[in-house]
Nucleic acid binder design. Structure first.
Length: 564
RNA sequence: CGGAACGUGGCGCAGCCCGGUAGCGCACUUGCUUGGGGUGCAAGGGGUCGCGGGUUCAAAUCCCGCCGUUCCGACCA
């Protein structure tokens, strides 16, 4: 492509609305433009990079036996009502004029097709995938293309006879994902993840570490332990039992509201304090006991409760329900509440907690003796530096971008939409499903986050819109024009994707800046200096290395480096 | 959905407090110039100041409402 004819609107100035590096560079390099919040138009250069990523996805999905579908973005609303996902908050965008919704993912449609045609164990297994636009009712799009209302996803779905077979499909996908991200030149890691509203038995995420990421992950500095904060655990010690036998006693604690105040007032360690948190779970009062200032992890809580609706109890209702306001609530003698506790408190005694009477606390609480605890669960949010649950080394907490997520769905959708088969014994069984997604825009944005400098993007050859960028230093010099045209034609003939900056009356400096901003892996600089010796300069964008190469060897040399 | 900020030629911004001729840089057009890191000079074109209402002799500027965008939080398959 000749730059003089190309639509690649680069900008020198920083776009005001872009705050993260990938977003800024995608705009400045002319990859895309924002149409409205969370919705982007991809310009030719950006679309080329996305097509590269999609081709890699396609190849690796085909390699594990995937078959590509093209599925409708418009879905009947009834289909989503059937699986109960129509009313998942912030999920579905709908069409005003019809009872249609814009598909945010395609489990439902896949299950509908499966239900129609899967009849026998002989029809299984299947891996069905698509690379298409999905829509989501994001309350707050942000970080450029990382969280949009419209985005392209590679989604695949496995249909199996059994959970054992699902394990294989799942592993095949995990392996394919590792290949995909490695081919894209991404530095990534895998974490155990929560399956959230998707349901299902197991899931892991493929992540890229990044300050700009909205996910928080826990990574062990020594071993391979890695988990999303939603489920990460650490090896903090339980509180355990001290000496036995002391009776519960009430202590006056005027104006003490927080754990910090209580510890200071009583001059005791926070680990002997049991903090009470009150929620409504499916409308019913629930009290949760945590150690001291341990933070409750709501994802873990929802998982421990087996799902359901969770909401904090309004301050106005506290006294009516417990006899006290927040700050003086505790588990002893509390009526009408289900009580659960964090695992660190299992069997603990000599605890101090609220007395359910304002300005009073109770000491010497023994959870075994004084409280009907309805289960101990890991409910706490781990902290940076805590010991790894696997090896005891330090856990580091950092931010990451979720690139891909794989789920063992099980039979949830098969049952809701009646997808079943007859096994060898003529017995009817639900199909066991898995679902596996990768965000295409996120591949591009993550790559740019990881591979850039102050001058611009540094494309990996796998995703680069063009492999080579020829810079004709001046179009007023006949030799430069001649040689750069020859090289352009030769690269094109040899199947190398090449961009040629043949713009007349654009200064060399301007062309160099644009070439660095656009970031193709190799720049071929054709100028008077080199041509004196019948040479051109080959610059490797990644390292900045420049070499003078005889004109006749350039195409061969660069092709060789592209295949390294 | 709570909190905050912003909205002025294509882009980045000033002007707004203190009402009175709409401005700067980049980009664009034309000519000359320059030609290895965003050349220089000159002459141009382009804006109902987000939208609607109000106050006023007069509103980009003050007041009210709405819309949009961004950030923090909540939420997040």
């Amino acid at each position: 492509m000749r730059l003089s004819k190309a639509f690649i609107p680069t900008q020198k100035e920083m776009p005001a609305d872009a705050t993260i590096p990938s977003h800024q560079l995608m705009l400045r390099a002319g990859l895309m433009r924002q149409l409205t919040a969370g919705v982007y138009a991809y310009l030719p250069l950006g679309y080329r990079a996305m097509l590269k990523a999609m081709q890699i996805l396609r190849e690796e999905m085909n390699a594990i036996g995937g078959q590509e579908f093209f599925l409708p973005a418009l879905n009947p609303e009834a289909l989503w009502i059937q699986t109960g996902r129509r009313n998942v908050p912030n999920f579905i965008l709908s069409i005003k004029e019809r009872d249609l919704v814009l598909a945010p993912t395609h489990e439902e449609v896949i299950a509908w097709i499966g239900g129609m045609h899967i009849q026998s164990y002989k029809d299984l297994p299947q891996i069905w995938y698509q690379i298409q636009t999905k829509f989501r009712n994001e309350p707050r799009p942000r970080s450029g293309v990382l969280r949009g209302r419209q985005f392209i996803m590679k989604d695949s779905y496995s249909l199996d006879r059994s959970f054992e077979d699902l394990d294989k499909s799942y592993e095949d996908h995990a392996e394919a994902y590792r290949k995909i991200f490695a081919r894209c030149g991404l530095k990534f890691f895998e974490v155990k993840a929560s399956s959230g509203a998707m349901g299902g038995s197991g899931s892991q995420e493929f992540m890229v570490e990044s300050e700009s990421g909205e996910d928080t992950v826990a990574l062990c500095e020594k071993c391979h332990y890695a988990a999303n904060m939603e489920i990460a655990s650490s090896n903090v010690s339980p509180i355990g039992r001290l000496h036995d036998g002391e009776r519960v006693e009430e202590i006056h604690t005027p104006n003490v509201r927080t754990i910090d105040q209580l510890a200071a007032f009583l001059k005791v360690d926070q680990s002997r304090l049991a903090k009470s948190l009150v929620y409504r779970h499916d409308g019913k009062p629930l009290l949760i006991l945590m150690v001291g200032n341990d933070r409750l992890n709501e994802s873990k809580l929802v998982a421990a409760l087996g799902g359901g609706e969770l909401e904090p109890i309004e301050a106005g209702q506290l006294e009516a329900l417990t006899g006290a306001d927040g700050g003086s609530i505790g588990p002893v003698g509390l009526k009408g509440f289900r009580i659960i506790a964090d695992k660190r408190l299992e069997g603990a005694n000599n605890l101090i907690s609220g007395a359910n009477r304002n300005d009073y606390h109770l000491a010497n609480i023994d959870l075994q003796r004084d409280v009907a605890v309805d289960g101990y669960f890991d409910l706490r949010t781990i902290e940076d530096g805590e010991p790894c649950p696997q090896c005891g080394s330090r856990i580091k907490i950092s931010h990451a971008i979720e690139l891909g997520h794989i789920f063992k769905l099980g039979t949830k959708y098969a049952e809701a939409l009646n997808v079943s088969y007859l096994d060898e014994n003529g017995e009817k069984k639900p199909v066991v499903m898995g679902s596996y997604g990768i965000g295409v825009e996120r591949i591009i944005a993550c790559h740019i986050e990881q591979s850039r400098d102050e001058h611009g993007i540094i494309w990996d050859k796998a995703l680069a819109p063009y492999a080579v960028h020829i810079v004709a230093v001046s179009m007023n010099n006949k030799d430069i024009v001649l040689i750069s045209n020859q090289l352009y034609n030769k690269f094109s003939d040899e199947g190398v994707e090449v961009l040629f900056d043949d713009r007349p009356n654009v200064s060399p400096g301007f062309k160099f800046k644009d070439a660095d901003l656009l970031g193709m892996p190799f720049q071929i600089i054709v100028g008077e200096k080199g041509l004196k010796n019948h040479q051109v300069e080959v610059k490797r964008r990644k390292t900045g290395d420049r070499r003078l190469v005889p004109v006749g060897d350039v195409v061969k040399d660069v092709k060789k480096m592209l295949h390294e």
